[in-house]
Design a binder for these strands. Structure first.
Lengths: 228, 228
DNA sequence: TAAATCTTTATAAAATCTTTATACTCTGGT
DNA sequence: ACCAGAGTATAAAGATTTTATAAAGATTTA
């Protein structure tokens, strides 16, 4: 049979970590642990665990933010386990890509069942945390983009736009889609934004912005990102 | 574009059904309802809804049993919504294949968020296949046409026209029909447009545009697209 | 407040669509 | 076989739409 699933627990409470270690190990899961957001992010990248259990109340960073940033590239299940029980938090986390949400104190068997459920639906394809094309490399973990190993300064909008492109390599993306993804649903007709930012991105990542190799214009439709 | 998801609610309490009907409809889901296990099972089979909300306390049969029997063939998400809050019930339901478990009384926004989560993980309705003819391949998902594996640059109109042809392979399409499909109802008599664009397409996809193999002229009627 | 970033505006360039002009092809009748 | 005429093909000019880019103005961030 397969190797047992590896689960990463990101939680600052040592008692919870202990409890989960015992519980999960005795149910044949391999476990690794992180005590804060920073360590958590890097462990997800390094170990690519099959499932992440994430506490929202981390000492160094907002858990919701960690979740969002993980979801930029990590596609395996993430289960939120936290004391925060406000409906607003739950909705936000689930809409940010969490697969399930449990509040502390939790019931052990229920958690295990929910883990089994999440693993059952496991999506098989997750993208790499670092993607390279040409002389450009993009690290989704640290949000750092490099050009010839030099750190490339991108604004938030530029970074978000490039992320969408990179994650949909080879596909023609309509103006509408891009605008909705980057600026939100109400901006679907602000095509000029896109033109401005595509021009800026090209100026930064293309060798010859007048003859782009990566961001290809599909006139009347949108753009296509190409790595070759 | 896409039709909204259809949700089947299996619950014997009319108040819950009413509440869910209002909540779900106002969030753009299509709804259908069943009041007991028997009706529920047959409606799942007949309508193949995108998601099922199942109450465990049904009058005619045990909900856990319904769940198990559904899971023998139904693969879309099933969310349990019930008053039963015992951990044992939760574990059993999740292990029988439920995607989520909520207890009544439930919080509306949370339910909606969990529905979105369940639908998100739904195996994406397989994208349209890639169609090949000769050395040409057409990928409708990524909107890319290739000729000998090289990406072929088509304008929007050329692409739209070729799509109509490909989707109606072997059929004679009248000028009128093609013009209406590609340019709109008011252009049904602009036959010259069609000639111009057919010529352009042939120049791009035919090996010998003077003796077209794919786009065949049906004089006095229209064109026929042929793959062989 | 200054610096950085985002949003608008303006305009030139490029791509695409529409129209025109002309040549070609096919068909049926003689 | 030839011709007339309707229908078709194609290039290319003209018109329009779409795109690229700089830069000014507005807003946000540190």
């Amino acid at each position: 049979m397969n190797k047992s699933a590896q689960i990463l627990v990101i939680d600052d409470e040592s008692q919870i970590r202990k409890l989960l270690e015992i519980t999960l190990n005795s149910n044949d899961y391999r476990t690794i642990f992180a005590v804060d957001a920073k360590e958590g992010m890097s462990m997800v990248a390094n170990y690519q665990p099959d499932l992440v259990i994430l506490d929202l109340g981390l000492p160094d960073e907002d858990g919701q933010e960690v979740l969002k940033r993980l979801r930029e590239w990590y596609t395996n299940p993430i289960i939120i386990l936290t004391v925060k029980s406000a409906e607003e938090e739950i909705v936000k986390a689930l809409d940010s890509g969490a697969n399930d949400y449990l509040t502390k104190p939790f019931r052990t068997q229920e958690l295990l069942a929910r883990i089994r459920t999440a693993l059952r639906n496991l999506a098989p394809n997750d993208s790499e945390p670092i993607i390279e094309f040409g002389t450009v490399s993009m690290d989704f973990t640290s949000r750092i983009v490099r050009l010839n190993n030099e750190i490339l300064k991108l604004t938030t909008t530029e970074y978000n736009l490039l992320s969408i492109f990179v994650k949909n390599e080879g596909r023609v993306l309509t103006h509408q889609y891009l605008l909705k993804q980057v600026w939100g649903n109400n901006y679907a007709d602000q095509t000029q934004y896109l033109r401005v930012f595509v021009a800026q991105l090209r100026k930064k990542i293309e060798e010859d912005p007048n003859h782009p190799k990566f961001i290809i214009t599909e006139s009347g439709v949108g753009y296509r990102f190409n790595t070759s």
